[in-house]
């Protein structure tokens, strides 16, 4: 005879399974299975077309670590890009959120304006900016004669890095802005009022009260910006195709070029396994470190 309590537990377990199963199955089939297949392909030499991939053990990984200057370059680019992306998007989004959560005029219109780039396809954004940087800047130059418009923003390796970074920050800021605004709205009024009574200035208040209180939002935003920057592909692909040369080739773009450009799917898979491990390690470390700093009111 099953007791009422265990019956209830069983029913809850069944509910749980029934409700999560669809998502679990979809993720298993469309995310986990391809991932495992890609791990398997990383031990093969395969051009993406031959019916039988050739097993070559760890040769791909050996090449990856000892003999691939393109990958090394993409790695350095991605790290530099990621650090700047995480810092810039979060700092700018947080400052904007503080401004927009306050009572300034037309804040709803401004919120919408900052969010719009986030809902446009990244490929479209890339092409739009590609036009602005080339033809648009040419017209600005004719009009203003300002030297800054005469620079080759997409044709010079260093400037192309700046362009890619600027467009990526501009595009992604809206998303983080929304999270920070939501976070700011959860900061309890009474804590702020108490600090006002204690005579805290606005800077102290931001630093001592608001920031610790919105730490959960920071954790989420830094996590997303970190993993998105490490995987960055679309904007770079449509803006510079990784060029000139390999100046703006990220790891994800390098994987794409290896697999689809050079038809080396096995080697490309090995690179993607490495990228996965990189993202996993970095984000795990980040989340644990940030979680410790979260406080409750």
């Amino acid at each position: 005879m099953i007791s009422a309590a265990s019956k209830k537990r069983l029913a809850r377990a069944l509910d749980f399974i029934a409700l999560t199963a669809p998502a679990v199955i979809v993720i298993l089939v469309f995310v986990e299975l391809p991932f495992l297949m890609s791990v398997a392909y990383s031990f093969t030499k395969w051009n993406g077309l031959d019916k039988v991939p050739q097993f070559i053990g760890l040769a791909n990984y050996r090449e990856l670590f000892t003999d691939d200057p393109d990958m090394a370059h993409a790695f350095v680019f991605t790290i530099a890009f990621t650090v700047l992306m995480v810092v810039l998007t979060n700092v700018v989004a947080m400052l904007l959120a503080v401004v927009l959560a306050g009572g300034i005029k037309g804040r709803n219109a401004l919120r919408a304006a900052f969010y719009v780039p986030n809902i446009i396809s990244l490929i479209i954004i890339g092409y739009v900016w590609r036009f602005i940087f080339s033809k648009g800047f040419d017209s600005f130059l004719d009009f203003t004669h300002a030297g800054v418009f005469g620079l080759s923003w997409l044709g010079d390796g260093r400037l192309a890095f700046v362009s890619v970074l600027a467009v990526s920050v501009w595009q992604s800021i809206g998303f983080y802005l929304v999270i920070y605004i939501a976070g700011l709205q959860t900061v309890p009024r009474d804590v702020i009022e108490a600090s006002l009574l204690d005579g805290a200035g606005s800077a102290t208040r931001l630093w001592r009260i608001t920031l610790p209180m919105i730490m959960p939002s920071v954790t989420v935003c830094v996590f997303y910006s970190l993993s998105n920057a490490l995987k960055s592909f679309d904007v770079i692909f449509s803006l510079t195709s990784g060029g000139p040369g390999t100046a703006t080739t990220s790891i994800a773009l390098d994987i794409y070029k290896t697999a689809f450009g050079a038809s080396r799917f096995g080697y490309g898979s090995a690179k993607s396994v490495l990228l996965f491990l990189l993202i996993l390690t970095v984000t795990l470390f980040q989340v644990t470190a940030f979680k410790r700093r979260e406080v409750e009111a």
Binding site: N47, G155, D156, G157, G242, G243, P244, G245, T246, A247, K257, G261, A262, S263, R264
Partner: peptide, 20 residues
């Protein structure tokens, strides 16, 4: 060989961009 068109092309692009 397969991939040479894009790969070598990218290297030459890097040359013209003054990177190498």
């Amino acid at each position: 060989p397969a991939g040479a068109e894009q790969g070598l092309g990218t290297i030459l692009q890097g040359y013209s961009a003054g990177q190498t």
